[in-house]
Amino acid sequence: MNIFQLRDVSFKYETVAAIDGVSLDIEAGKRIALLGANGSGKSTLLRLLDALSFPGAGSISFQGQPLSEVRFADHQFAFDFHRRVGLVFQNPDVQLFNPTVFDEVAFGPLQLRWSKSEIVARVNAVLESMEIAHLKDRPPHRLSGGEKKRVALASVLVLDPEVLLLDEPTAALDPRSQSQIIDLLIGWGDGGKTVITATHDLGLVEDIADHCVILQAGKVAAEGNPAELLADQALLQRANLVHAHRHRHGSVVTHSHPHTHPHKHGSETI
């Protein structure tokens, strides 16, 4: 059964098209990688799937229910949707807006009006399972990058969502924190949950996905089995996912390199 169904979805920021006529069917329980270079529309697509923005043209439905502004005027529907679909943002400073780790993880449950004892129990359980219980009274600005990421993840997982949307989950993390996060995701996804990960880190794909969608300039460039897509050098080059002189042989990555493309803002320097 399809959990998400997208038909000719387009989305513009002012005049620039970020998503341009995307149609996708996402099966429940699948682990999907959205691959694409910076600016290919991955983050925009995740925000559309999380109903934070709504398509300018085309339609998105979640379990047969159309996601539209009108539908989300209904509080009950919105609460229900946001409990079942969680998004982990790329920048943890954006996601961690509460004064302490405990408050952060409790934010979602509080919005959904769970009972106080239930909130305390659930938050403590999630902190425990993510091995961050000792941080619970810390303010986010005293956490390391890896710790912040785990708190961000905990703040979403506490709601036990059916669909987990992840935006560059390993970006700007040291290798050890990266593998911790990946292990966590692998462990969590096994329970029949849908996990959609946006990334440009090809090394991550086979660990976290059994289906792969390649985005290029807001359009779906290709879709299919990760192993097959990752073997298609011409495709990866076209989508700006590899450089011409750095490529893979079979499943071994040669010339592996730190593949970070720092997010560029309009005018970084002063």
């Binding site: 919105a78 998004l87 954006v94 408050d103 934010f107 509080l110 919005q111 305390v120």
Partner: peptide, 19 residues
């Protein structure tokens, strides 16, 4: 703007609840 999205994503509808 991004923080606002992150809040909405976790069920924020403008009402504040504190523990």
């Amino acid at each position: 703007g991004e923080v606002h999205q992150a809040m909405r994503s976790r069920g924020f509808r403008g009402e504040i609840h504190l523990l």
